[in-house]
Amino acid sequence: MTTNQSKLKRKNDLIAYSFILPNFLGFAFFTLVPMIFSFVLAFAKWKGTGNIEFVFFDNFKKLANDRAFVKSLSNTAIYTVLVVPLTLIMSLVLAMVLNMSIKGRNFFRTVSFFPYVASLVAVATVWRFVFSPAVGPVNMLLSKLTGKATNTLPYWTTHPGPAMVLVVMFSIWKNMGYYMVIFLAGLQSVNEELYEVASLDGANAWQRFTNVTLPQLAPTTFFVTIMLTISSFKVYDIFLNLFAGGDNQLSDATRVLVYQIYNTAFRSLDYGYASAMSMILFVIVLVITLLQFYGERKISE
């Protein structure tokens, strides 16, 4: 390489860096550095002032015996196991329907997307009112239909079982439209000719769906599954707004992982211990992502 060429190369590099720099500075400082800091804190004991005392795996040992933490983890896991497949199926079905040439398609697309953009606090508050055990219209209607008194009907906002049902329904309602749009995008790239070939071969609608649509949608489905799983594991605001009162506290039945992190860090000011919990969240999300990437590669082979 002549000096002129390498000079030009260096100049080009500098121009490229200048494009990246504004974003990278913010990104490095407010994302990368805290991430690294989080790894360090997870193995330390620190209340925000004084020296950071390294305790190695003590935080993690403590976590295993922390009843509230284990409960929050299992609640989050149950929530995820319910929300991911249900949202996936509902949004896929909706996308298939809204991909057909039917009247009012754009209207239906817009309507089903709206809960996603609507502010969470507002809609969660309505849901809390509508599902209010004693006076809400849902239990009033159920009471009318079954002839039972409202106090024998599900306590949606307080009892563990019904509360989980409520939060899962809410979550599907809120996010279905978003994943529907992603599936719609995926459906645009499905090869139309394959449908014709399948029809000529005498495949019925269901066979066309399983043999043509699903395999071609596999990348989209993987993407949606990853996004859904990750967002389910970091759920917090939905639970808080549906179930917590003025003190912002969640009971055993409804506490989730991020709530536990929040409480430990910002109420008890136990930063080290909270970071150890964050590590658990990080590892779970990482493992799921890796599993799914691995699975996707296997399927596409």
Binding site: T31, M35, I230, Y271, F282
Partner: peptide, 21 residues
Amino acid sequence: MCYIATIAIPWQAYMVPQFIM
């Protein structure tokens, strides 16, 4: 790669040190 790797990491996993900083 730095950017890609961090997309999957939830903000909630590093919000505590971020707050301290």
